[in-house]
Design a protein around this nucleic acid. Structure first.
Length: 302
RNA sequence: GGCCAGGUAGCUCAGUCGGUAGAGCAGAGGACUGAAAAUCCUUGUGUCGGCGGUUCAAUUCCGUCUCUGGCCA
């Protein structure tokens, strides 16, 4: 059988999940998550994970299966994705990969650099070093080792990652990039179609506001509170939109009255970044009403 | 009514010992290969509350009015 994948991408709150379900039902496909927060079992409310109603409408994979304090990565996502398509007998095609996380979509399409997992202790060591001596020293080490690096001197996170790769394997990120261009091993082996869902800014903002209100009503604060009680305050996913604001509020750093606005504002910024990411991908066919892409989908699946 | 503290960028505030101003946040744009809903980069002309006065020159000093907060009556 000819296996095909449809990507459904776009900013938060535009209706990606709804389109995905529609496609899955119409063509008996399976929905696969590519949203960096919906992987987590403990982050359902604030990530707008599919409801139990949604889950009944079509098979969903890679949702809500990673437990705190485990942290998901793009590499782990690739691993899980390939494991899914190789071992899941019931998996039906087309696959509808849905998510607003451009980085993960890219990982699927193009693969990741071939870097083996790095020991957590080394990561912590480098993190501590940077915290202690500032990132200038770390950046000097990086630029001396890899003069081609395009990491910015202020980008602590990327400096840290580059140093991990250096110290663990003596790899230069700039060389990995070149190598990966010839390497087809990790590229998605299926035909693909990319559909983007987006709405006008005002409509999207209104959707976001409704969504935030719903999250708060559905118990976002309780969801976060129970994670804090388990001692996961520093768990990276709790720095994501909505969760961060809820955490700050529960920790008494901010006030409850401004919470919804703070979440809305962060979500707007998220949308902006998602749009910036997807904008450069010329292959995406954009729609605001589903109908305009239904022909393209039909054609693609034929 | 009296006293005090304030009124400076959309918001919170710095500052100018007199030469027409700058941070953070927001907004706008961008980058992005194992935390990515993260991380980072670029981008700030606004009657410096109004009106008068002093001065070559006032947002900065003086007077007055006005608004906000606090205290005293």
């Amino acid at each position: 059988m000819n296996k095909k994948v449809i990507f459904v991408v776009g900013p938060t709150g535009a209706g990606k999940s709804r389109l995905a379900i529609e496609i899955a039902r119409k063509y008996n496909g399976s929905i696969v998550n590519a949203d960096s927060i919906q992987f987590y079992e403990d982050l359902k409310i604030g990530s707008a994970s599919p409801s139990s109603e949604d889950l009944k409408q079509a098979p969903h994979y890679l949702y809500s299966y990673v437990k705190a304090p485990l942290e998901m990565t793009a590499g782990a996502f690739l691993r899980d994705f390939y494991q899914l398509i190789e071992t899941e007998k019931k998996l039906s095609f087309p696959l509808i990969v849905v998510g607003g996380t451009g980085f993960y979509i890219q990982a699927l399409e193009k693969g990741m650099y071939n870097v083996p997992p790095i020991d957590a202790s080394l990561k912590i060591e480098i993190e501590e070093e940077i915290k202690l001596h500032g990132n200038e020293k770390a950046y000097k080490e990086l630029i001396a080792f890899d003069p081609q690096t395009k990491v910015h001197p202020n980008d602590t996170y990327r400096i840290g990652r580059a140093l991990e790769v250096k110290r663990a394997f003596n790899f230069k990120m700039s060389e990995l990039k070149e190598q990966s261009e010839q390497d087809t091993k990790y590229k998605l082996p299926f035909a693909q179609l990319k559909v983007g869902v987006d709405l006008e800014k005002d409509v999207l903002k209104a959707n976001i506001q409704k969504r935030t209100t719903k999250m708060l009503n559905d118990g976002l604060l309780d969801e976060v509170k129970s994670l804090l009680e388990k001692g996961y305050a520093d768990w990276a996913p709790l720095n994501s939109v909505g969760y961060f604001e809820a955490k700050e509020c529960l920790q008494g750093k901010t006030d409850r009255t401004g919470l919804a606005d703070a979440i809305n504002q962060s979500t707007y910024k998220l949308i902006k970044k998602q749009r910036t990411w997807f904008k450069r991908d010329q292959e995406i066919q954009w729609t605001d009403n589903f109908l305009s892409v239904s022909e393209a989908i039909k054609h693609f699946l034929n």
